[in-house]
Nucleic acid binder design. Sequence first.
RNA 1: CGGGGCGUAGCGCAGUUUGGUAGCGCACCUGCUUUGGGAGCAGGGGGUCGCCGGUUCAAAUCCGGCCGCCCCGACCA
Length: 576
Amino acid sequence: MRWSRALIPTLKEDPADAEVASHRLMIRAGLLRPVARGVYTYLPLLLRSIRKVSRIIREELDRMGAVELLPPILHPAELWQETGRWDLYGPLMMRVTDRHDREYALGPTHEEIVTDLIRREVRSYRQLPLSVYQIQTKYRDEIRPRFGVMRAREFLMKDAYSFDADEASMADTYQKFHDAYCAIFDRCELGYRAVEAEAGEIGGTVNHEFMVLAGTGESAILSCAACGYGAASERAESAQRDHELPDGHQLAPLEVVDTPGKTTVDEVSQLLGKPADSFVKTLLFETDGKTIAALVRGDREINESKLRRLLAVERVEMAEPDRVKEVTGAEVGFAGPHTLPDTVRIIADYSLAGHGNLVAGANQTDRHVTGLEIGRDVEPEEWADVSLAVEGDPCPQCRQPLKETRGIEVGHIFQLGTKYSVAMNATFLDESGSPVPFEMCSYGIGVTRVIAAAIEQNHDDRGIIWPVAIAPYEVEVIPLNMDSEVVVQTAEHIYDACQAVDLEVLLDDRADRAGSKFADADLIGVPWRVVVGDRGVEEGVVEVASRRDAETATVAPNEVAAYLRDRIQPARHGGG
RNA sequence: CGGGGCGUAGCGCAGUUUGGUAGCGCACCUGCUUUGGGAGCAGGGGGUCGCCGGUUCAAAUCCGGCCGCCCCGACCA
């Protein structure tokens, strides 16, 4: 391809509204242009990379026995109503109405569509296991789209769905996808790790997120260097701790203090001059008509998912203000654990273990208490891990301190079990001829996000540094002087020769000066560069350089194609 | 949706406080010179100043409403 015909609109200056490197570089290097909030045109360079990543995905999934199909983007409401997700998904789903007033969604994910297909077409255990996938545009009306294609409202996703006859088989399929995902991300040359995660809206129990490690990532990961444990922060557990006060701890007297109008930990902390970690945050929840008081340390956040799992319930809700008043006898903001009615079940988070002389709400409006001692003033029904884990918490497996890193979620795989098959009555006949619901899993990769993540991990202050396996072009030929016939002819010759040995080559045939061609080449980040200048051509050589390491080789024009082929072909599979 | 900021040429910005002829850099077009790290000179094209309404002799500038975009929070590939 010739640059002059390739539509590569590079920019000299950074766009004002791009915050992270990948977004900035995608705009500047002419990969991406915004059309609406969170909606983009993928320009030719980006599309070429998308095709490379898609191809890697297809090769790995085909290899493990999945089959590609293409369901619609437009989903009739009825299918989503079968699983209840028409309402549950809420405003995250883009909805449209046709001329007959029938409602549709623009698919944010495809469990319903695929389950519907399989329940119609698959009848027998003999047809299982079965895995299908698609690579297609998805729509999610995100609360806050940002960072370019990193969190867009329209994006390209590979999603896959597996159907198995029993749980053991399902776990086996899940592992195969897990391994295929590792192969895919390895080949894209991403530095990543798979961690335990929350299932969110999709549902199910066991699931893993594939996180590309990057400082600008939106997700936090807690991991343990000692034993290898790793989990998304909202999923990470911390080890059990016993409530043993430090040696020499003097039990403090319980005193009521006035704290008029101060309802938050921060406000009371300032007023009393006591640090937030000496506070008890008393959070009231309701589930099945019962009230639960969850006690977490003042500097910690509750993790409602943990609470839900502990209580073995589908949902917990923060108690309404009226209910809070009824239970505590005070306005919201002054709840404390020590004078709650017996009907309230008290759960203390491990973060409070070993802490005494605490500040808490007094269960009286405008008053708190100091000197609260757990075990003396309040006896929790149980101690548990119900707070959001943070760096330094003890690892649930080996008790070593957890470390926090940031990551970009590029893949997420879920064991769904029979959640969707039961809801949609999707069954097959087993060996005895009785109908059994499918054991399902679903698997997602954000294709466009993979590319953004790759750029986050592979760039410098001059531009992108593409790994060969996903680069839009492999070679860029730069004739430095378009007025020099011999330079142009040599460049054209190399361009043809590279194409003849099946290299993906871009020829910068623009009449620009050397400096701006070099700057653009650095910016778009093609892995190999061939510089053809008057000086070298007179001596019968051109320069071949890689974008990643500044090494330059002088090569005879006739040998350039073979030279590059020998270096590029081994790297195409990933690892170069 | 709540909090903060911004909408002026394709991109990056000044001008708005104190109303009075719409500007700068880059990009683009023409010519000449230049040609190994974003060239120089000369000439040129391009803007209903986000939209609607109001105040005024006069509005990018003041007032009201609306729209869009970005950042911080709850979601997620």
